[in-house]
Each structure stands twice: as structure tokens, then as C-alpha cells.
């Protein structure tokens, strides 16, 4: 019982939906049931999952960092620019920048109570500008003698690639940390009710800083991996990470209200999103179809979660207040 406590009621639903989509795709679409497709799906689940896991951190504490895509873009650019000679230096610099950004945002939100939605929209725009300042014309390019990194990341490992493995390992480690550390538990507490959490002895400032720094680090990691994979990082790139990440997190049942959400469901959310994307890509139909399909699944999952929450008497409806007003602090 205790091992399953955090695995909520929607888990089986998401597993079944993933299987149904996989089976339907295999039957209906030529070339879907191949290891290449599977590897592509899992690799991207690792990438999107990193962003979604980061969003989960901020959503669990009852906030939202909407600037994750900009953070990923800037991190990717820094990694390539600073990594011209030593790739390690580039990665460390990029992660340090992302971590500092997240920590500062978390600290400001904890101390001033300003709405994270508003603050991070500023950051979304500002960091995108910074990305374009860093690489005004041509994208940053991975130097030729480092192209083995690119090849290495997409090297097949079982049903996925090295990039997929890196992403999944980080995500699962995060999931274990959320469940097994007091900091992780404190995040759920803060998201449940920040006053009560403080009353229970939780250092809420530290929790906000950790959530936003963690989110930025995960988004930065995703940005670095994506840049290394493609060997280039442009000032306008990685825009889609935000929407994909948010979709994966919400399909994964993370509550915008805060205090609820777990990593396994988020991974399944990312999986569902990527299966749809892969199916649409193979069918060769327009990307508008992918948007409609993803939007439809998102809506369906919200309705199902709503119904499940109603049955167990939890106040799911409150999460809609987030959309109508400022994010609850």
C-alpha cells in the first residue's frame, strides 16, 4: 500500500491509453511498428519528459515556470558557444546559468509573492531576446571535432537512444527524490497549502528556490541535449518545448492547483504526446492534425481526471481558478 500511495488512480488509465494508442498505431499505420519509430518515440519522451518533469516541480508547488523553452534555448546556445574548446566547460556553464536563473526566480516569488505566471512570461520574452543577442545571425554550431557527441547521443541502445537513456535516468532519479526526500515531500506540502506547510515547519523559501532551480536545470538539460543532438542552436529554436512539456505534464495529471502529480504519470503523459506526434508524422498529414489530436487527448484527460476527482471528493475544480486569476501563492 505505502509503495503505491503516490501512484494515483489515473495511472492505469494512462497505461491503458498508451497501449491502445501503440496498438492502434501499429495496426493502422504502415511503418509504425518498427524499432526506429519506437526509438524515436522514446528518445523524444526523454527530451520532452525532462521539460515536463521540470514543469511538474513548479506545478507541484502551486506555481508555473512558463519560460522553460527560452531557458532551454539559452542553455543550448551557451553550451555550444562556451563549449567550443571544452564541451564539459560549456555544459557546466549552461547548467550553472540555468540553475542561477531558476534559483533567483524562486527566491523572488517566495519573498515577494509575485505571480509566477507574470514573472516568467517576462522571462520567456526576455530570455528569448537574450538568445537572439547571443546568436544574432547564424546559429551556434558544434565544432567539427565534437560531432562524435552528436552521433553518440542518437546511438541506439535497446529500444531507445543514449539521449533517451540519459533523459529517462534523470527523470526517474528525480521521481525517486520527490518521493524519498523531505524536500520532495515539502514541495507537495507547499503546493497543498503554503501557509499550512510553513506552519508545519517547512522552509517555504527553500522549497520555491529548489522547485524553480530544478525546473530550470531540467529545461536547461533538455536544451543542451537537443542542441548537441542537432549540432546547432539557433536563437529562435526549441519553441515547441513549452507546449509539449505543458501538454505532457497536464496529460500526466499534474494539477495546476498544486500539491498533486507524480513522475510516472508525467512520463506516460509525455509518451502519449509523442505517440500521437509519431503517428501523425508517419501518416504524412499536416501538423494541424497533430495539434487537434493532441488538444483532443488533453481535453479528454482533463475531463477524466475531473470525473475521477469528483468521485473521490477532491476539489479538482479549484485548478480552474488558476486559469482565471493569478497563480495562487
Amino acid at each position: 500500500m505505502s509503495a503505491l500511495a503516490r501512484i494515483d488512480r489515473g495511472l492505469w488509465l494512462r497505461i491503458i491509453l498508451s497501449i491502445v494508442l501503440l496498438v492502434a498505431g501499429s495496426i493502422l499505420i504502415d511503418g509504425f511498428a518498427t524499432t526506429a519509430t519506437l526509438a524515436s518515440i522514446t528518445e523524444n519522451v526523454g527530451l520532452i519528459g525532462l521539460v515536463a518533469a521540470g514543469l511538474m516541480l513548479t506545478m507541484v508547488v502551486g506555481q508555473l515556470d512558463i519560460a522553460v523553452a527560452s531557458v532551454a534555448a539559452v542553455s543550448g546556445i551557451i553550451a555550444l558557444l562556451a563549449g567550443q574548446n571544452s564541451l564539459l566547460l560549456g555544459i557546466v556553464a549552461a547548467l550553472a546559468a540555468a540553475g542561477v536563473y531558476g534559483g533567483v526566480i524562486g527566491w523572488i516569488i517566495a519573498r515577494t509573492g509575485v505571480s509566477s505566471l507574470v514573472l516568467t512570461v517576462c522571462m520567456l520574452i526576455g530570455l528569448r531576446g537574450l538568445a537572439l543577442v547571443l546568436v544574432p545571425q547564424a546559429p551556434a554550431i558544434l565544432s567539427d571535432d565534437l560531432f562524435w557527441v552528436s552521433d553518440g547521443l542518437v546511438a541506439r541502445i535497446g529500444p531507445t537512444s543514449l539521449l533517451g537513456v540519459i533523459g529517462l535516468v534523470i527523470i526517474i532519479a528525480l521521481g525517486l527524490a520527490m518521493r524519498g526526500t523531505r524536500l520532495g515531500l515539502s514541495m507537495y506540502a507547499v503546493g497543498g497549502n503554503v501557509e499550512r506547510a510553513r506552519g508545519s515547519g517547512v522552509n517555504t523559501t527553500r522549497v520555491y528556490v529548489a522547485a524553480f532551480a530544478g525546473s530550470a536545470l531540467l529545461a536547461g538539460t533538455a536544451g543542451i541535449l537537443a542542441s548537441l543532438r542537432s549540432g546547432s542552436a539557433s536563437g529562435t529554436g526549441m519553441d515547441s518545448l513549452l507546449l509539449d512539456g505543458v501538454t505532457a505534464a497536464v496529460v500526466g495529471g499534474v494539477s495546476l492547483e498544486g500539491g498533486r502529480g507524480n513522475i510516472i504519470n508525467v512520463l506516460l503523459g509525455a509518451l502519449i504526446v509523442r505517440i500521437i506526434a509519431a503517428a501523425v508524422a508517419l501518416e504524412g498529414v499536416q501538423s494541424s492534425v497533430e495539434s487537434i489530436a493532441t488538444g483532443g487527448v488533453l481535453l479528454a484527460m482533463l475531463l477524466v481526471d475531473y470525473a475521477l476527482a469528483r468521485r473521490s471528493g477532491l476539489p479538482f475544480a479549484n485548478s480552474w481558478r488558476v486559469l482565471a486569476g493569478p497563480v495562487r501563492i
Binding site: 500511495a5 526526500t181 523531505r182 507537495y188 503546493g191 497543498g192 501557509e195 499550512r196 506552519g199 508545519s200
Partner: peptide, 25 residues
């Protein structure tokens, strides 16, 4: 206004004030 967190289990509410960073559920 009691401060137990409704979204955590009873034991988790106890663990919030645990002395160590790692939880022993």
C-alpha cells in the same frame, strides 16, 4: 486553522518535520 496538509497522507504529515533529508516511510 489546522496545518495538516490534506493532500498528504497522515504519515507524510509526520515526516514533514523529519530531522533528516531522506525519508524512511
Amino acid at each position: 486553522e489546522i496545518s495538516v496538509l490534506p493532500n498528504l497522507t497522515v504519515a507524510e504529515n509526520f515526516m514533514l518535520s523529519a530531522r533528516f533529508g531522506l525519508l524512511r516511510r
